[in-house]
Design a protein around this nucleic acid. Structure first.
Lengths: 349, 349
DNA sequence: ATGAAAGCGCTAACAT
DNA sequence: ATGTTAGCGCTTTCAT
């Protein structure tokens, strides 16, 4: 181990400058020199030290990926997308997951402070915007910051999000088009961006159709399975008739709801229609009608934007990716004929 | 940005050595000095540069995680476990996924060659053992290599695996105990470690019970959903009666099989019992009886072993974690009474 | 086209 | 207890 530039110099008789030039493909070396140096490098099994390079160049090829969690299809798919693009451009990834224990801001600030990342990809910021401190720091260091999933105001942050409103509206329109008027909603947590946007989409579609989303048709959930169970139990326990269709604003809650219905012998879709949002893996197995979220594409877009900026290019500030309605058995329609697209690839510069 | 040690020196009047000592919590500084230096550090917003540190110390706090894939519950959970332990010990993670495009060996060698990782965690090596080259390199650099999922021979590699044999045997015994003798197996790909071990477990249990696993009861699968579908279709298309119970050696194949059965109107568990192995997320929703694999625990064990070695401690070479039988509706038994443990935490030193 | 030399920001002997 | 100094392995002016 530990063969260094100097070893190559010693072996070839060239200076560090020349050898360095060869490594970095500088055009200022003769073909002959290059060949000889490369031969020596190969013979010695030399590889430049990343730490030394980073220190000397004052830039790295590391992208920091900071997620609240990893053990979920959503995060995994986004990471997958990021990794694809990073690999393509020879960037490396360093990942950190908050797990509700550490917080994302600290993680972000650390990688910035220690100056070892070229870009920052952050998913689902807890606050509405990154702390000014981090954004400022990143801007000073010319480290692009990409906020995935949630658009962030502020001039120095790129954001990649999806068209939640169009997705939710498309789902509502699908239900409305199939004659449902008595629609119950299990919405996500207030203050959560996706939840609020989806709720907006529901309201807009309902309003346009002249359908009332009355108080007793709305249940508050938290985007986790248990909250879907709870919501459904509350409905069933009122004694009032269930809505004809139930739109859980994410699949996890829809799955929780389905479980309760199954336990109580309520048949889906015969007795009630249940639909979700996200299109997680299980949704397919449960034949759940849902809205597909372009997770991998979001990851790819995020990495692409970051790398473009790092390499000195320009990118739009906000990318909004389309969602897609996926019709399966749980809404009682014919899946064949109605797989339609909701929302378009919009870009706001 | 870019405040350095020197800035702190200038501000406090102390030398780089003293300031460095403060940063590194050396006991050779007076309380008073420490306080003053810390104050200056805070005032300046100073943070040591990771690249400089790594270069100077000749060691890093990076763990490289090299997986064949990420978009699957299995890898995700392992990564989750690794991350938990890494965070606990203030280690950082750098991840690389092969995606069938890049190969794991190259990825592993690169991080070793560039000398920027303190440990290597590799999942599911394609070859039976790491290439000697990489192992040698790692050993020279005192970089521990941990092979997750597959035990690796060779003195310099730690391996973390699960008790596939006991798990498969436990499943077989469960079926046998419930009176099944006509058991079909969809096995995994030959040459795949997990597949071969599970198959061994099946055979052992069958042999002990004096049950024949005849040729026509065995289907070859590849551990992916489609291969489970295919296997089931082949069975159904022979016209012969289906086995009474079908043990798909992973959940993906079991899910594929369930799909086909559903499509053809064969009821589970009324007409046929289907069980799997892994306990992926969907298994719960499908009420699939299966064998739980300690994914997160494997990740934790891997990171723990690596870090222990890095910090100069000793660890066993081979860790084998227990699997657990999870009984659900798909085998027609009462889930309540038979959630049992299969295999024990064994350690071979 | 090549080389000499000065850093990059930190750590760690060694000296005091 | 603190300071001096020589690297760590590379890149990058500035000469030649």
């Amino acid at each position: 181990m530990g063969t260094t530039l100097h070893d190559v110099c010693r072996k070839t008789g060239f200076s560090t400058a020349t050898v360095s030039r060869v490594i970095n493909n500088s055009p200022l070396v003769t073909k002959r020199t290059r060949t000889r140096v490369l031969k020596a490098i190969k013979a010695l099994g030399y590889h430049p030290s990343r730490a030394a390079r980073t220190l000397s160049r004052k830039r790295s090829d590391m992208l920091a990926v900071i997620f609240p969690e990893i053990a979920s299809g959503f995060y995994t798919e986004v990471l997958r997308g990021i990794d694809e693009i990073a690999a393509e451009h020879n960037f490396h990834l360093t990942t950190a997951f908050a797990h509700g224990q550490r917080d994302e801001h600290t993680l972000a600030l650390q990688s910035l402070n220690e100056q070892w990342v070229a870009g920052l990809l952050i998913l689902n910021l807890f606050e509405v915007s990154l702390p000014a401190e981090a954004v400022k720091l990143a801007a000073e260091q010319r480290v692009p910051v990409v906020s995935i999933d949630r658009p962030v105001r502020g001039p120095h942050v790129i954001s990649i999000s999806m068209d939640n409103i169009a997705g939710a509206a498309a789902m509502m329109n699908h239900l409305l088009a199939h004659g449902y008027r008595d629609i119950g909603i299990i919405r996500g947590p207030r203050g959560n961006y996706d939840a609020d946007q989806r709720w907006l989409g529901c309201q807009q579609a309902a309003a346009r159709a002249g359908v009332m989303l009355t108080e007793e048709r709305i249940q508050q959930g938290t985007f986790v399975e248990g909250s879907g169970r709870l919501a459904m139990e509350r409905w069933l326990d009122t004694g009032r008739p269930l809505p004809k269709a139930i739109f859980a604003c994410n699949d996890a809650m829809a799955i929780g709801a389905l479980e309760v219905l199954g336990e109580r012998g309520v048949k889906v879709p015969e007795d009630v229609t249940v639909v979700g949002f996200d299109d997680v893996d299980s949704a397919r197995h449960l034949a759940l009608t849902t809205v597909r979220v372009p997770m991998r594409a979001m990851g790819r877009a995020a990495a692409e934007a970051a790398i473009k900026r790092i390499l000195g290019g320009e990118t739009q500030q906000q990318h909004v990716l389309a969602t897609q309605l996926v019709v399966r058995r749980s809404c009682g329609c014919d899946p064949k004929k109605s797989k339609t697209v909701a929302g378009g690839d919009r870009m706001k510069g």
